[in-house]
Design a protein around this nucleic acid. Structure first.
Length: 491
RNA sequence: GCCCCCAUCGUCUAGCGGCCCAGGACGGAGCCCUCUCAAGGCUCAAACAGGGGUUCGAGUCCCCUUGGGGGCACCA
């Protein structure tokens, strides 16, 4: 049996987004599942739309997600080059081969004329298509004009009759009338191929067995099958993935649509997601389930995905992206990380915020905040106070609900008294006397601990009080309590 | 306009003719736990688009309607 080879073939004309990530993931999963190879090929044949840096973003995103290709422009491989502009001679050769076979023809029509024709057709409410001017040119004459350096493209000679049927793995046979297809351009006047041509040639040369791509290609699918058949090559298995819809479900996902439908902190770009504090595990788990379903146990690691993945159980219907679900998976995977791993991942956020963190302290804090994090950068909101010299509690927050400043001051003073008698403030020694105090004070735990929380951490929401005090240390805790009393006394 | 694809809770989905008065997950509601916020546990509400067939039997097969999406470039 032939070994499986799949590919992801993005063009470096835009950023690497969720759709790209999922296509890459499914390709990756299928390759790993079957012991095949996952190839990354850069389709940079459109020089006008070329975006510098786009290729780096693609490679880095795959790397970050943990689904790197086996072969690519940077990883190498035996089927290179993997950048189409570095393969330009190949395409010209094959295009002319098709001309020889009478399946393609050189066309000398100018873009201006074609444009005019299209407008006329549209005005007459006809379907815009190539009018066939050069289709039946005498081959000898055509060759002469090419040799005379006249500008030309090569077009596919689509059969005028009959229909083309090609099979999509998820949808079954799809038949399109040939009259509905056009004489598509295969080779552009700049000598570079269009996607239609380049992808088919490269897939053949790189021995791609399964083409797993977005369903925006479904409409030109028959053209692609025609090209392959004209060459007499073996067709790959076609798998057209479902499309991603904007969160509202009304229309295709795009940067703008997502911005309109969701709150801030959302992005469809993988690199942004990384910056926003999402984990590769969370993103992968989220993305893998849009277009594929498991009966239960939907929290999965990459290895489990590989194990359970089944290419023909993919869904053909479009899927609206749901960022709340991303948050859920991200939080879930954060909770699955070891303390060491999570510590290492959140450390950069503190550093970036200008806080100096000691690994040892961070390792003690991590278990306190892990189940509170949705994104990694949430660590700042929950744990910055551990690393700050002083905290600045909002005076209002130092007064517990139902109490006044005087009562609150009394509580902090009492706490200071109790805690200052203890040699060290470990959780085990601080909680019992504080609980005892609450018992006899007439105040409730929520009020007392609430005030102390604000006094010690400077914020109303924080990790558990006693554990936090232990990490902050006796000296600073007492100092902060004293400060709180001063604030309350001035109110 | 033409061509193509799709159709189960608000969303992602399980279901491949009887196991389904439809299961899971997110989100929502409620309760429990609780020093805040989370996490966790339990419970609830929530769907087979409509109409025709086929069949002893249809969410599952076929057709139509409707709805949604995509494509119609010397872009991918």
């Amino acid at each position: 049996m032939k070994s499986i080879r799949v590919r992801m073939a993005p063009s470096p004309t835009g950023r690497f987004h969720l759709g790209s990530a999922r296509t890459a993931l499914y390709n990756y999963l299928f390759a790993k599942k079957t012991g095949g190879k996952f190839i990354l090929r850069i389709e940079d044949t459109d020089q006008k739309r070329y975006v510098p840096g786009a290729e780096e973003e693609i490679v880095q995103s795959l790397e970050w997600l943990g689904i790197p290709p086996d072969e690519s422009p940077v990883h190498g491989g035996g089927y290179g080059p993997y950048r189409q502009t570095e393969r330009r001679d190949i395409y010209s050769k094959y295009s002319w081969e098709l001309v020889e076979k009478d399946s393609a023809f050189p066309c000398f029509c100018t873009p201006e004329r074609l444009d005019a024709v299209r407008k006329e057709q549209l005005a007459r409410k006809e379907n815009p298509r190539y009018d066939g001017t050069c289709r039946n040119l005498n081959p000898v004459e055509a060759r002469r004009r090419v040799d005379a350096d006249e500008k030309y493209v090569i077009r596919f000679k689509m059969p005028k009759e009959g229909s083309t049927t090609a099979v999509d793995l998820l949808r079954g046979p799809i038949t399109i009338e040939n009259t509905a297809l056009d004489d598509f351009v295969l080779l552009k006047s700049d000598g570079l191929p269009t996607y239609h041509m380049a992808a088919m040639i490269d897939d053949h040369l790189m021995e791609i067995t399964h083409v797993i791509r977005g369903s925006e290609w479904l409409s030109t699918f028959a053209l692609h099958a025609n090209i392959i058949r004209a060459f007499g090559w073996e067709e790959p298995t076609w798998v057209h993935l479902s499309l991603f819809l904007r969160p509202s479900g009304k229309g295709k996902m795009s940067k703008r649509a997502v911005a309109e439908d969701s709150k801030d902190g959302r992005s469809i770009f993988i690199r942004d997601l990384k910056e926003l504090g999402y984990t590769p595990e969370g993103v992968l788990n989220w993305v893998v389930l849009m277009g594929w379903g498991v009966a239960e146990d939907d929290v999965m690691t990459l290895d489990q995905m590989v194990e359970r993945f089944n290419i023909d159980s993919l869904t053909p219907s479009p899927a609206a992206v749901n960022f709340q679900k991303l948050d859920h998976f991200n939080g879930t995977h954060i909770r699955l990380l070891t303390n060491e791993d999570l510590s290492a991942r959140i450390k950069p956020y503190f550093t970036k915020a200008g806080l100096e963190v000691q690994n040892e302290t961070l390792l003690k804090i991590t278990p306190l905040i892990r189940e509170r994090l949705v994104t990694l950068d949430d660590c700042l909101a929950f744990a910055s106070f551990f690393f700050q010299e002083t905290v600045k509690p909002n005076p209002e927050d130092l007064i517990a609900k139902g109490l006044d400043a005087k009562q609150s001051a009394e509580i902090v003073r009492k706490a200071y008294e109790i805690l200052s008698r203890l040699p060290e403030l470990t959780h085990a020694v601080t909680e019992p006397p504080m609980r005892a105090y609450v018992e006899g004070s007439g105040f409730n735990a929520g009020q007392v601990f609430g005030i102390l929380r604000v006094a010690v951490t400077g914020q109303k929401v924080s990790p558990p009080l006693f554990e936090s005090m232990e990490i902050i240390g006796r000296e600073i805790v007492l100092e902060r309590l004293k400060k709180a009393v001063e604030i309350l006394e001035k109110m």
